[in-house]
Each structure stands twice: as structure tokens, then as C-alpha cells.
Simulated assay, not measured.
Amino acid sequence: MSLGRESAVDRLETLIETIEHEPTPVPVREVWVYGDLALGLDPIDRLDVYLTKDILLENDAASDETFYEEHGVRGVGTAVDADWAASNPDAVRANEHGHVAPERCLAAHLLAGDEPIHLEVCNASFEDNVTQRLRGARLRDDYTQLLDPRGVCLWVDGTRSSEAFEKLRESAFAMPTLSASLEMLGMDESEATEAARVVHAWREDQEGVTVRGDVV
């Protein structure tokens, strides 16, 4: 399943409208798109979206206990908003340890399961996390953890970039190759080439909605 560029841009607009007009499990501060759509490909195999979220600073122990008793999931009222969870119990998602996972809740709320969309969620801004993930990937020798640095900021704190959307529709962003981008971040040519190969191979293996979250 692929998306035409126009359809992909439309999908980003509806995603942002949902964030603007509906309660979300955690506050969202920024929306970025990166990868194929930012490069101007048409059609694209996958739509890569990055959300910068706030860490919820609540301690609603009563909601946590109530939701655990009813659904067997911890963290509602502390890691995700209790009112949102009460209104959207079918969208509450937990990690392997039974604790609510904000990034999975966001994916469940914003996306349909069969859409070819990858969602990255972090409390750090896109540009800061590109650097952080690069450092971590090199330390662990795991290039699948890299975040493609070729990103476009679409929405920040309630303000949408009309210019960014217009350029996406017109395929007007000039972007280097992934390996060249990684070289700009400090990799030598051979490492950047291998890292780009691994990232492309990892992306080709993904199907439907995928989500990854981290905290910096």
C-alpha cells in the first residue's frame, strides 16, 4: 500500500486537525514530517511523522488504580491523561510490562491500523533527537535506531506552517540523500553509506502503522 503525495499531505492535515480539536493522551507540541514525503517522492511507500510531546505531570493515583482494576493497565492519570483514557478506553495501549505507553496511545488515537504510516514520538524536538539518536545508534552499532534528519516542521504549539504544506504539495524542498545527510552530521562516507542501507532495509520491512517512542 502506498500513498500519492497529495493524499499524504491531506492525511497530515487531518492528523493535525485531530490534534488541534480533540483531546490527546498527552499534549503534543510539534508535528514534523520526514523521509519520502519531505523528499518529494510521489507516490511514497510510507509516511514518516514525528511528534514532540510533553511529559504528563499529573499524579492522579485514584484514576490509575481505577483503570488498573477495570482494564489491567497501569499509568492512566500519571503517564496519560485520565479524562482522555476514560473517553477512549479502546485506544489505551500498554507496553510489554503492562504500563500505559503514550506513544502507542497517540498512534491508536490518530491513525488507523492499516495505514502505511510510521510515528516517532519523543519529548525532545526533532532536531535535538536526530543528534541524540545518531549518538545512540553509533554507540550500540544499531543503525535502525537512526532518525532520518531530512525533516520539515509543519506545526508548533498550535501554529500551522502554510508555507511548509504548500512546499510539500509542490515537492519544493531540496533534500540531500540520506547518506549525505548523515555525513553532514559527522559520519564518514563508508559509515554513512552503510547506515543509510540499514535504515532503508528496515523501512522496507515495515507494514501498516508502526510507532516508536523514546524519552530524552
Rank of each mutant, 00 (worst) to 15 (best):
D141V: 14
E170L: 04
D157L: 06
R203A: 12
L119T: 06
L146R: 00
P149L: 08
L178V: 13
S179D: 12
A195E: 00
H118V: 15
N123P: 02
G151T: 07
H200G: 10
S181D: 02
A192I: 02
T193W: 00
L134I: 14
L147R: 01
E183G: 11
A124V: 10
M187V: 09
V121S: 13
S161M: 05
S161L: 06
V199S: 01
A172P: 02
E207T: 11
H200P: 00
A174R: 04
D141F: 09
N129D: 14
T144W: 00
T177G: 11
P149M: 06
E127T: 09
F173P: 12
M187D: 01
I117D: 00
K167Y: 10
R212D: 14
A192V: 05
L182A: 11
E170H: 10
S125K: 04
R212K: 05
M187R: 00
G186D: 05
G208L: 06
A164F: 08
M184W: 09
R212Y: 12
L139D: 14
R140C: 11
T131I: 09
E120Y: 08
G186N: 03
L168P: 11
G151N: 01
H118W: 11
N123V: 13
L134V: 12
D128H: 05
Q132D: 10
A164P: 07
L146I: 04
H118Q: 09
D157W: 01
T131N: 04
R140V: 15
M184T: 14
T210A: 06
H118S: 15
V152A: 01
L168R: 14
D141S: 15
L139G: 13
F126K: 10
S181K: 09
C153K: 06
A172G: 12
Y143I: 12
S125L: 12
I117W: 02
D205I: 10
S190D: 10
L119Q: 03
D188W: 02
Y143Q: 10
D157M: 06
A137N: 05
A174S: 13
W202E: 15
S190P: 01
D148V: 04
L119C: 12
D128T: 15
A201R: 04
N123A: 08
V211D: 08
C153E: 11
T193D: 00
R150N: 02
S181M: 08
S179K: 00
T193N: 00
H200I: 10
A124H: 08
V152G: 03
G151R: 01
R138E: 14
P176T: 09
L139Y: 13
R197S: 15
F126C: 08
Q145E: 15
S162R: 05
L146W: 00
R135H: 15
R150T: 03
R169L: 10
D148T: 03
E194K: 00
R197T: 14
A196G: 04
L147Y: 09
T193M: 00
S171C: 07
L178K: 02
V130S: 09
R203Y: 02
A196C: 06
M175Y: 07
E207D: 11
T177R: 07
L185R: 11
A180G: 14
G151V: 03
K167E: 09
L139H: 08
Y143M: 14
D141K: 02
R140M: 13
R138N: 03
V130C: 08
L146G: 03
L134W: 09
D157G: 14
M187G: 02
G208E: 01
T144P: 02
P176N: 07
R212P: 03
D141Y: 09
